[in-house]
Amino acid sequence: MLALFRRRTPHRPDRPPSVGWHRSASGPPLTAGQIRGRRFSPARRGLDPAEVYAFLHRVAGELAATRRDLVTVTEENVRIKRAPRSWQARFAPGARR
């Protein structure tokens, strides 16, 4: 019973265990174009292809928007981290003006 709660992969001391959990081990992250272009073989009984492709386009659009937001947030993060250093360099005691 306790075996169910044990880690299946050993902890790597060079990074926290949660880093990279969302990445696929099979290759690089999917792009919105790969999702939109994915095709499935026809099946006699299965899902409606139009619904599947509509869903894939929605997922691809959300992925593209999320990646744009990530770039924006990353740039904002860099700007916010630089602001105190810039202020300190200009107004801290002993700083040249």
Rank of each mutant, 00 (worst) to 15 (best):
R85V: 04
T66Y: 13
Q88R: 12
V52Q: 11
Y53K: 08
P13S: 09
H57T: 07
V73W: 11
G27T: 01
A89E: 08
S26Y: 05
A95K: 07
R82M: 07
E62Y: 13
H11T: 09
G20D: 09
R12K: 12
A3C: 02
E51H: 14
Y53I: 02
R15T: 05
V78W: 04
R15P: 03
L47G: 10
A32D: 05
G20F: 06
I80Q: 14
P93M: 02
A50H: 02
R6E: 07
L47C: 12
R38I: 01
Q88F: 10
T72S: 12
A32G: 15
R36G: 00
Q34K: 02
V52F: 13
P49L: 04
V78I: 14
R90V: 00
R15W: 01
K81Y: 11
P29M: 03
D69E: 15
R58C: 05
V71K: 15
T31H: 10
L70N: 14
V19E: 14
A64T: 02
E76I: 01
T66D: 10
P28T: 10
A54V: 00
F55L: 12
T66A: 15
R7A: 10
G33W: 06
P93N: 06
V52C: 13
A64L: 08
A64Q: 15
A65W: 01
V71S: 13
Q88S: 13
P17T: 01
R68C: 04
L63V: 03
A25F: 08
Y53Q: 14
R79P: 03
R67I: 03
E62R: 15
R7H: 12
R7Y: 04
V59M: 00
R97W: 07
E76T: 09
R97V: 06
G46L: 00
P84H: 04
K81L: 15
K81G: 10
R15K: 13
P29Q: 07
R8A: 07
A83C: 01
G94I: 01
L47Y: 09
G94Q: 05
R23S: 12
G37L: 05
N77H: 14
E75C: 13
E76W: 14
A54G: 11
D69C: 13
R97C: 05
G27N: 00
V73L: 15
V19T: 11
K81V: 04
A64F: 10
T9L: 08
F55V: 02
R97L: 09
L63T: 00
